[in-house]
């Protein structure tokens, strides 16, 4: 129904009119520019991540070509001879993170259950905030505290006891120094606890209260009710744990300062070890020669890919739970 347009016409005319409408449903020039600008900013961030993958891949190509898959399976890390095998770092990264989770998961579950299900709000709020503050303390500060407080404490009071009790296993043997996989794992446990417990709190809060009431109405005790809630939130809790794992895998400073930094694979938790992140932190500025640097960048690429997959999976799990139940998913 287009009659002749008068000067009152609402139609935008001109050369760029169709462009404006592609960019902006309102057909307003300012909107088109604004939307294009914001889109470019968003795409810039996407481009950054793609550039990151690209840069890490290109710069590690030398090492990838030279060692291929052997890079992941060799335990020989000898910069002087130009031999680079990443297994000690992979082992150290995985083991320290596992120790952290073994300690942190029960602790975080306890904290979350206490704060969401048991504590009255006037206690849960300030205490919850204090637990969150643990996440605000910088990694390097944990490292400093670890060197001068935690490591001596473990050396004198904890590790001898463990050696006496479990010395018959290969896990707690060897010289006791306070510096090594065990201490690195414990400092990581302290660092990921606020993260895991925060996500578990969100997940528990997202479990509908009708489920609690249903359980209570069936004559369940308080503890049985909590079990119902935990079972219901299980996928989200798994997501929280994996999110914590992702954080532990990439944590750098505190671990570097406490794990001993020796590229060896040893079953004993008391032995010094090395993580991927620590290796990069320690050796990157000292790396002489292209192959050495390339091997370190390849370590970075591995770390990037692993944390990418781990985090993606964790977010998927947490998002699924908090979305289904209409929760907030603050950390997801």
């Amino acid at each position: 129904m287009s009659v002749a347009r008068t000067d009152e016409s609402l139609v935008v005319a001109g050369k760029w009119a169709s462009w404006r409408h592609t960019l902006s449903p309102t057909g307003n020039l300012g909107d088109a520019i604004f939307r294009l600008l914001m889109l470019l900013v968003a795409l810039f961030v996407v481009a950054l991540v793609i550039a990151m993958v690209f840069a890490l891949s290109t710069d590690s190509m030398l090492a990838i070509r030279r060692f291929g898959f052997r890079f992941l399976t060799s335990t020989n890390w000898n910069p002087i001879k130009g031999e680079f095998g990443a297994l000690p770092f992979i082992y150290g990264t995985v083991m320290s993170s596992l120790i952290a989770l073994v300690i942190s998961v029960p602790l975080s579950l306890g904290i979350a259950v206490f704060l969401v299900e048991q504590a009255p709000p006037f206690i849960a709020r300030p205490i919850g905030f204090l637990v969150e503050l643990l996440a605000a303390i910088p990694s390097v500060v944990y490292g400093l505290w670890g060197i001068f407080v935690l490591a001596p404490f473990l050396r004198v009071y904890v590790e001898p006891v463990l050696a006496r009790l479990f010395g018959w296993t290969p896990l707690f043997t060897g010289p006791i120094t306070g510096i090594g996989l065990f201490t690195g794992g414990i400092i990581l446990a302290i660092m990921v606890t606020p993260i895991i417990s925060a996500v578990v709190r969100d997940v528990l809060a997202a479990v509908p209260s009708t489920q609690r009431e249903a359980a209570l109405a069936l004559g369940a005790t308080k503890w049985e009710t909590i079990r119902v809630v935990l079972v219901n939130g299980a996928p989200g809790i798994a997501g929280a744990v994996i999110l914590g794992l992702g954080r532990a895998l990439g944590e750098t400073m505190a671990v570097t300062m406490l794990i001993g930094n020796r590229p060896e694979v040893s079953l004993s938790l008391f032995a010094p070890s090395y993580t991927i992140a620590s290796a990069i932190a320690n050796e990157f500025t000292e790396a002489t020669g292209d192959l050495y640097l390339s091997a370190l960048v390849e370590l970075g690429l591995i770390l990037f890919l692993v944390t990418f997959i781990v985090n993606g999976f964790a977010r998927f799990l947490v998002w699924n739970v908090t979305r289904r139940t209409g929760g907030v998913g603050r950390a997801a």
Partner: peptide, 9 residues
Amino acid sequence: TLTGIPSIV
């Protein structure tokens, strides 16, 4: 994803 990338990387 960017949030989860270790800062050392």
